[in-house]
Amino acid sequence: MKVEAKTYWLPKKGNQISEYEDAFYPKGVPRSRKGAWRFAVSDGASESMLSGPWAEILVKTFCRSSAPVTAVSVRGIVARAAKAYESWLEEYLRRREREGRPVQWYEEPGLQAGAYATLLGLSLASDPTGESLRWEAVSLGDSCLFQVRDGALIANFAIGNSREFGSRPVLISSRPDKNGTALSRLELGAGECLSGDRLYLMTDAMAAWFLREHESGNTPWAALEGSDFQDLVDRLRDEGLVRNDDVTVTCIRVV
């Protein structure tokens, strides 16, 4: 079986592309490693400092791991990501000094508090018969995975209802000492993928719309697949159906 994927993303309306603080991986054509593929999206919290780089490190660290998706392996991934972020931050601060732009007083509290982001990681692996794929996923925070088969939503992970979205999710911090609650709430999911299935990974703004549409009896995946992404998001934002936030959707096709 083969896996094709494409990610669509846009910054919050009114923001520069450089201010986009979601992250996704892989960036280009997905490549399998030993018959397995990995995908991840992350949503950096707008009210934390440097959450975009932290989200980027999280998705890369998840996708570069080849361990089965378990609570233990995810804890390891978060710990490795936090170390990688620490090194990145040291270099970032050195660069600021070198360039004559030292950290200002108003940045210090945010830097001390750490960066915060969601993580939705998906692993797809061939089963021994070669007739299906097994998906395993982890979710920390409110990014979502949806699975569509034959025009019907057959799995939504890890948020079950659109009313569960709020603006105060528990997220993963770049500071390991702040992660007790987040890690205790990590959700694991698994299922089977057949040829023709579609999987969608989304950060919360689009995911909330997707679930609401589904709850109203509509087929939001058709709108996603059948529209220009920018046009669709512009329209949904203008109509107040999608909150103005960074948006990221990875569309995966199993063939």
Binding site: A45, E47, S48, G114, S167
Partner: peptide, 11 residues
Amino acid sequence: LDIGTRPANLR
């Protein structure tokens, strides 16, 4: 004040 996503565990 609500100016964006604020993590519940950010203190």
